[in-house]
Design a protein around this nucleic acid. Structure first.
Length: 259
DNA sequence: GCTCATGTTCCCCT
DNA sequence: CAGGGGAACATGAG
C-alpha cells in the first residue's frame, strides 16, 4: 500500500532490521525488477557493503551503501520484510542476504522496482524530477507550488513534480478534509481554500507518517471509501466516484461542492 | 468472463 | 508547453 506514509514505514523497518548489516550476497528470483543493472552487476556492486541509515523522498526509499545507493520504488503492491529464516514468499523479487537475516523486496504486481545510483545525479535520472517531500512543505511553499498550476486540484496534489509522496488515497483524504471538490481548478481556489488545503495536507501527512500508513480512523475517508454504498463519515451522504487524472476519485457531494 | 486496484509512463489531442 | 484522456505494464481479488 505504498504512498508516502507506507514508504516511511518501510524506511523505519529497514533502519530497524538491516541498518549496519553487511550484505553477503543477493538472490534474484526476478531479475526484471532490477531496473538498471543485470542481476550479476547488481550483486557485484552491493556485495560486502553495509546498509547505512535509509532516507526517503516522496514514495522513493533510498538505502545508501558505501559509495553507492539502492533506490526502491514499490508501485502499488510492494513491501519489505526482514526474516531470519529461509521461508520465502512467492512474490519476493530480490533478497539481500546478510549475516543475521535477510531483507526481502516483495512486489506482487511488479510495478516499481529497484535501481542502483552512484550519486545524486544518477538518483535524479532514476526518479525523475521530484518536488519537495510532502512532509516538508510549509504554507508559503505550498502556495508557490500551486500558483502557476492549471487544471484540477486532485491532479496537482498527485503530481510528484510538485509535491512528492501524495497518491490517490491521500489526495482524496486531503480534499475531503479540506472540503474541496477534486476537480476544482487550482486557479479557482481562493486564499482561504488554499489555507484549508494546506492545513489538511499537513495534518493528513503528519498523522499518516506517525502511523506508517494512511489511518482508518473514525473521521477518515480512507476507512469507508472501499465499502459498497460508502457514506461520508462527516455527514452520512453517499459518496461519489469519478475519474480524475486517470484515477478513481472518491468525494462527498455535500461537503465538497463542485467548483 | 468481467471490473477494479494505494503507481508511473507514453502517446495522442486540445 | 501544459494538461486531459486512455492505454499499457502485471497480477490478483471479488
Amino acid at each position: 500500500m505504498p504512498e508516502l506514509p507506507d514508504v516511511e514505514g518501510y524506511r523505519r523497518y529497514l533502519a530497524r532490521h538491516a541498518e549496519g548489516q553487511r550484505i553477503a550476497r543477493v538472490d534474484v528470483p526476478d531479475p526484471v525488477l532490477i531496473r538498471n543493472r543485470s542481476a550479476q552487476a547488481f550483486g557485484r556492486a552491493v556485495k560486502g557493503k553495509r546498509f547505512a541509515e535509509p532516507t526517503r523522498h516522496g514514495k522513493w526509499l533510498i538505502a545508501p551503501l558505501d559509495g553507492t545507493e539502492v533506490l526502491l520504488h514499490f508501485g502499488m503492491t510492494g513491501h519489505l520484510t526482514w526474516s531470519e529464516d529461509s521461508g520465502r514468499h512467492q512474490h519476493d523479487r530480490l533478497i539481500f542476504v546478510c549475516e543475521n537475516g535477510e531483507l526481502r523486496y516483495n512486489n506482487m504486481r511488479r510495478f516499481g522496482g529497484v535501481w542502483l545510483a552512484r550519486d545524486e545525479h544518477e538518483r535524479g535520472e532514476v526518479t525523475g524530477p521530484l518536488g519537495p517531500d510532502a512532509a516538508d512543505v510549509d504554507r508559503n511553499l505550498f502556495d508557490e507550488l500551486m500558483d502557476p498550476r492549471r487544471g484540477a486540484i486532485k491532479a496537482a496534489l498527485m503530481d510528484q513534480r510538485l509535491v512528492a509522496g501524495v497518491g490517490n488515497l491521500m489526495s482524496d483524504e486531503i480534499l475531503w478534509r479540506a472540503r474541496v471538490h477534486p476537480s476544482t481548478p487550482v486557479r479557482k481556489l481562493g486564499s482561504r481554500a488554499r489555507g484549508h488545503l494546506y492545513d489538511a495536507l499537513h495534518a493528513v501527512v503528519g498523522e499518516s507518517v506517525r502511523y506508517g500508513r494512511v489511518p482508518h480512523g473514525e473521521r477518515w475517508l480512507t476507512r469507508v471509501r472501499d465499502d459498497r454504498g460508502a457514506r461520508c463519515p462527516r455527514c452520512g451522504t453517499p459518496l461519489r466516484r469519478s475519474t480524475i487524472a486517470g484515477r478513481t476519485a472518491c468525494w462527498c457531494p455535500r461537503c465538497q461542492r463542485a467548483q
